[in-house]
Amino acid sequence: MAESYSEGRTRDGEYQEQFLNDKTLRRLGATIAGLFTLGVGGLVAVIIFTQVDFDLFREIIYPQFVEAFLRVLGIVLVGSLLSVTAGVIVGLGRVSNTRFTNAVATGYVEFFRGTPLLFQLLVIFTGIPAFWPPGQFPISEWAIPTAIIGLTLNHAAYVGEAVRGGIDAVPDGQMEAARSLGMSYVQGMREVVLPQAWRNALAAIGNDQVILVKDTSLLTVIAVPELISAFRNVNSATFDPWTPIILVAIAYLMITIPLGKVVSHLETRSDWGGDRR
């Protein structure tokens, strides 16, 4: 009766093809994908041949875009490292049995997920220097530290939730087995629960880190010379949108695509004894 999923039965017992059976669905999918590719390919071709100014492209790529790219890459690397580290701490707080610790971690997550990153960046950028008398704030280049602090605090909340979910998904029996062997809670967490929680949370953490890369675009508001700022500079000086747009797209994808590869490599590596190994 496997056919009954794609075919309907008429009253006199004969099989009749429905409008959307498996074969037509497959063809429909391929057709849509083909049309989409054709459309996008055509659009890109039109842009490259009619809109992109290759002289301008060469002129702006270095130093402006290369510098912006390296700046974003640096912020992403530091922000990723710090937000994942802080996120593990937040996640451990979220699964804590100590009510106070748990409440603090929950409050942290609620605040940093519940308000926009842009707002948080403005709070740090304008709010912190206000504790000093005007002109007395000791850090003259406050925008980059703001960027790293803001991205770390914000994404630690999301990573923390991913870690909490990862820990919750490890069966209780794992900690019980560790404890029954005489291991402490800390040893059980470190040796048994967290390695498994990490595997469970990897996809969600990777997803969040891709968003962190894209969130660097908000830094244009606090005057970090990043990729969107570079676009706006070029666009306002030349009125050419497409040449810098192409560069911005390439620059972001040069970070996000390898990041995705790193995450799937880590996922494969922690497939203990599975057939992906």
Partner: peptide, 17 residues
């Protein structure tokens, strides 16, 4: 607990080891 060994219905082996 080091003096008390326990074996569980659901094995509870550590899957990453």
């Amino acid at each position: 607990r080091q003096r008390i060994g326990m074996v569980f219905q659901s094995f509870n082996l550590f899957p990453h080891k």
